[in-house]
Nucleic acid binder design. Structure first.
Length: 158
DNA sequence: GCCAACGTTGGC
DNA sequence: GCCAACGTTGGC
């Protein structure tokens, strides 16, 4: 099993939205970046877990944990002219964009903020999220990073 | 293939 | 709202 981090703007779709969804399940659609697409298409596997990260908010933070319940398949929103994710260059024959399905595993006892992650910058020096200018919406998390971050959950903040 | 212009992301 | 970082686009 491998670990990942998925970004979402809570104003569009929050971890609370996911836990309120039927079966606490959603399709992770709308990713329009090739590097992130490649992860979704080929790398995220059934049973892999991911941090659900809230970006674009006053307090960016990891809010919860999700699990991959369906591996990469074509992102149909790219074929839908009514969708904000519509891409005229994609078609069912040439899907171009891919999505996975994820289900909520649990919310964290408390959000682990970006500020707190940065405070552990020595231990998390290679953490993709902390790389300067990182805009990837799907990124890998190593076993060590996963453990360290979950260790923060029950520790004192900061 | 180069690169300037432009749009988007996302923290602050 | 600002701005740095970065990806994409399109002229050449």
């Amino acid at each position: 099993m491998r670990y990942w981090l998925l970004k979402s703007e809570p104003a569009s779709f929050s971890f609370a939205d996911l836990t309120a969804a039927p079966e606490q399940l959603t399709s992770w659609e709308g990713v329009r970046n090739y590097q992130a697409r490649n992860f979704l298409r080929h790398s995220l596997r059934l049973g892999d877990q991911a941090f659900f990260y809230h970006s674009g908010t006053a307090n960016p933070a990891i809010a919860g944990i999700v699990e991959v319940v369906r591996e990469g398949y074509p992102d149909g929103s790219a074929f839908d002219p009514a969708s904000p994710y519509y891409d005229p260059g994609a078609s069912p024959d040439q899907p171009r964009w891919y999505q996975v399905d994820v289900r909520a595993v649990r919310g964290l006892d408390r959000p682990i903020t970006l500020a707190e992650l940065k405070a552990h910058g020595d231990a998390l020096a290679d953490f993709a999220l902390l790389r300067r200018g990182n805009r990837l919406s799907v990124m890998p998390v190593t076993d060590a990073q996963w453990k360290l971050i979950l260790g923060l959950e029950r520790g004192r903040e900061g």
